[in-house]
Amino acid sequence: MTRDRVLPAALGLGTFTAFILAAEALIRLGFVNRFIVPLPSQVAGAFARVVAEEHVVARFFMTAGEALVAGLLLTAVGISLGALLYRVALLRAACETWIAAMASAPIVLMYPLFLVIFGRSAWTIIMIGFMAGLPPVILKTIEGFAGTRQVLVNVGRSFNLTRGQQFVKILFPAALPTIFVGLRLGLIFALINIVGVEFLINFGGLGQLINDLAERYDLPGTYVAICFVILVSVVFFEVTGRIERWLRPAE
């Protein structure tokens, strides 16, 4: 079992290392122009400089803060709208396909419109993140409530619970794992769009850092900043994935 996991992981890491070494060799030998692709060793050497000089930690917290505000808005608005649509069946039948269509719409391309409305500020970034993450939260909230086992609802009724108590004690806890799946998807969409819009409008945290360094033609620095964004995405993806798995057995 351990061998089944270790050998593939070793192959993956080994291939990655071989790729980096091959890139280093090709650039040093002049097969690849070092003014277009920086040496991997230069990129590795630039990490400390970028962290110290470009205030990476502060930028990370700025991006995280924008994602947090977008996440809070998603939680409050998305779950409320999902609960409303679950309760009012006619409204749900009318709107659910629209919300699903909104999920496939290129909302981030509305960023120039948001720039006009909110100005070149964090709110533009937050609102784009919020809008992009909203459809999965609403749809998964509806799915979570609709998927509550009838026996649980009947138990609540047998205890003469009011509609409010039924919601708080039965429906919401039963739907929570599915709602969290939606929140996780929504947060991933929000984070992708937040960093993307930071890069596009040259404002904010890690996304702006990439744009800044690219405009200064600091190639190793640009690659380092890209690595940071990938790292943040990986950590975020992994942490929310673990929370999701932790919530699942409660179903």
Partner: peptide, 27 residues
């Protein structure tokens, strides 16, 4: 075997905002 070796990289890179690679693509 190959799936276990390389798919984790794809899963991690998948949710990364691809627009950040644009400066590299321009170069």
């Amino acid at each position: 075997f190959l799936g276990r070796a390389f798919e984790p990289f794809l899963y991690y890179l998948g949710p990364t905002p691809k627009i950040i690679f644009f400066p590299v693509m321009i170069m």
